[in-house]
């Protein structure tokens, strides 16, 4: 379990993380979501003792990171897959990490096997593709068989196959009862990966809730209806729902009534329907709506 309490970090006058508190439970994948520059990486670095918070603290199973005896046995982290020496082989990279925490070379070969890098273990890490580098980073995080795992934007730049692999891997880790915290700036990615969401913007907590609940709250359900008798249908619906027209093809967009009720109403009045389709609100639109106020760098309106 990870507990953050009142974490605050300033860089000069800039507040990167502002009084942030949350808990990450074991046994599920928790998504750490926010736009670029929201303070996700800084928060993870404070949890891992790399950066010192100006205020507040982060505890891992009740201890500060610096108090852990063999940290890799408790916490595995992949903050940046590029944190390897390009002229050092993948196996040597893992060997020194393992040695520092009294982990055997046998375990090094095991984790290499787990992430599918055995064949390239002797090759220099500098020649790895991004996907391979991510796998090496994950191998490093798994070395000590830790109970708590942190991944910072692990799917950035990966091909679809790699994304699916990482997603399944994290689900397996959580199913083993581990605590998994994974950051991303993409809600659509998190919707498929995380059970629980911690959403931040400009260093402040926006929401901590289950992914399902977050999406339900954040999106509106509309129903698209096309009919040759659109005008008549619109009059019928007006009493119980909000109706607008699609500007492109003139279809009705009904908000506040489910598709079944609309169909029943149409049938009862002998109205022919050409389309009756529920529209899930766009996740990205909802996310942008939520974090609009807190995005650090806006693109200029064109």
């Amino acid at each position: 379990m990870i507990e953050a309490a009142g974490l605050t970090k300033h860089y000069g006058p800039t507040v990167a993380v502002d009084d942030l508190s949350f808990t990450v439970e074991a046994g599920r994948v928790t998504g750490f979501l926010g736009p670029n520059g929201a303070g996700k990486s800084t928060t993870m670095r404070m949890i891992l003792g790399l950066d010192t918070p100006n205020k507040g603290q982060a505890l891992i199973d009740g201890k500060r990171y610096s108090e852990l005896k063999r940290p890799l046995g408790t916490v595995g982290a992949l903050l940046d897959a590029k944190w390897v020496h390009p002229n050092r082989s993948a196996r040597s990279h893992l060997r020194w990490l393992a040695k520092s925490n009294h982990i055997s070379d046998k375990r090094v070969d095991e984790v290499l096997e787990m992430v599918g890098l055995t064949a390239v273990a002797k090759r220099n890490a500098g020649g790895f593709s991004l996907g391979m580098a991510q796998r090496l980073g994950i191998a490093g995080a798994l070395l000590g068989d830790p109970k708590v795992l942190l991944f910072d934007e692990p799917v950035n730049g990966l091909d679809p196959e790699g994304i699916v692999w990482i997603r399944q891997f994290m689900h397996r880790l959580a199913a083993d009862g581990r605590t998994v915290l994974v950051s991303s700036h993409l809600l659509s990615e998190m919707a498929q990966t995380a059970h629980e969401l911690i959403v931040i913007g400009k260093g402040k907590l926006i929401a901590q809730t289950s992914t399902e609940q977050f999406i339900k709250d954040a999106t509106e359900d509309n129903v698209r209806v096309r009919s040759p008798h659109a005008v008549k249908l619109r009059e019928l619906l007006a009493g119980s729902a909000t109706v607008t027209s699609d500007e492109v093809d003139g279809a009705l967009v009904v908000h506040g009534l489910d598709p079944a009720s609309i169909g029943d109403l149409a049938a009862a009045n002998g109205i022919v329907l050409h389309e009756l389709s529920p529209q899930r609100g766009s996740l990205e639109a909802a996310f942008m709506q939520l974090t609009k106020e807190s995005v650090e760098y806006h693109a200029a309106e064109s």
């Binding site: 003792g49 790399l50 940290p71 890799l72 940046d80 590029k82 944190w83 390009p86 990490l97």
Partner: peptide, 16 residues
């Protein structure tokens, strides 16, 4: 080179 390639952070994670 440890700072250049970020391995110093990996070091500090392994050895706080």
């Amino acid at each position: 080179t440890e700072y250049r390639f970020g391995t110093i952070r990996a070091t500090f994670l392994a050895v706080p």
